[in-house]
Design a protein around this nucleic acid. Structure first.
Lengths: 110, 110
DNA sequence: TTATATACCTCGCTATCCGATGTGTCAAGA
DNA sequence: TCTTGACACATCGGATAGCGAGGTATATAA
């Protein structure tokens, strides 16, 4: 394992909201895209993803709808208005987080 | 709360090892330094820190020793050789992590 | 027809982290 | 002098996220 899961745990919401902000996707596709785009740094298991998506839907950040594609039923997820807001907030937090870490790792420079 | 704890959870080990790589510190001081340097992004509670330090010592990354300072007994922690190796590894992982996230947040650029 | 990839799902375990709580010391001020 | 608050260390129980294991079902390739 290249990167300890412990480190990347908390960023799942940000990643998923971001991917869905570009286009509607279904669960399995999200896992593939995460792995592909991150060069396998983010490998979410199905046992994590699906309950996670349901929770995001409960929070109103995403909305799901079934769609037939290649003769196969898939459950697509769409980012809601509220989800877009949450994404913005998460991106701002990510920025604060990495800058704080840069200050600690980089040295005294503040 | 500026930054969701969920996001910053996994980075405690990196931060503590890094701070101890500069100088030996005691627990209470570590908490203060984390808050100060990170502008309150990293606020570790005592209930998290002390068990965490004990675990790091069990892993052999740090070594503790008591020291009297200002007439007050404090338990200082020192980064071991093995701890330095772990720190290097964690820093490399942090780099991979942020670059992977940058690819996802930034867009298609790979 | 058998295996593999796709696609969704649930359940129970584990690890982590935090708040609450407890102990004791020291300095400042009422 | 007594009390308050900061300092310093510690443990414990609860909450929660994420994972592995396991289950179901369909399409495609061998």
């Amino acid at each position: 394992m290249k990167v300890d899961k412990e480190l990347t745990k908390g960023s799942h919401e940000l990643i998923i909201l971001k991917l869905l902000s570009r286009q509607d996707m279904y669960g399995y596709q999200l896992i593939q895209q995460m792995s592909l785009l991150s060069d396998d740094v983010f490998c979410m298991s199905q046992g994590s993803l699906y309950p996670f998506l349901h929770a995001l839907e409960d929070k109103g950040y995403i909305q799901s709808y079934p769609q037939l594609e290649n003769g196969r039923e898939r459950r697509f997820y769409h980012l809601t208005q509220s989800g877009h807001k949450a994404l913005e907030d998460k991106e701002r937090q990510w920025d604060l987080y990495t800058r704080a870490m840069a200050r600690i790792l980089g040295g005294i420079a503040k």
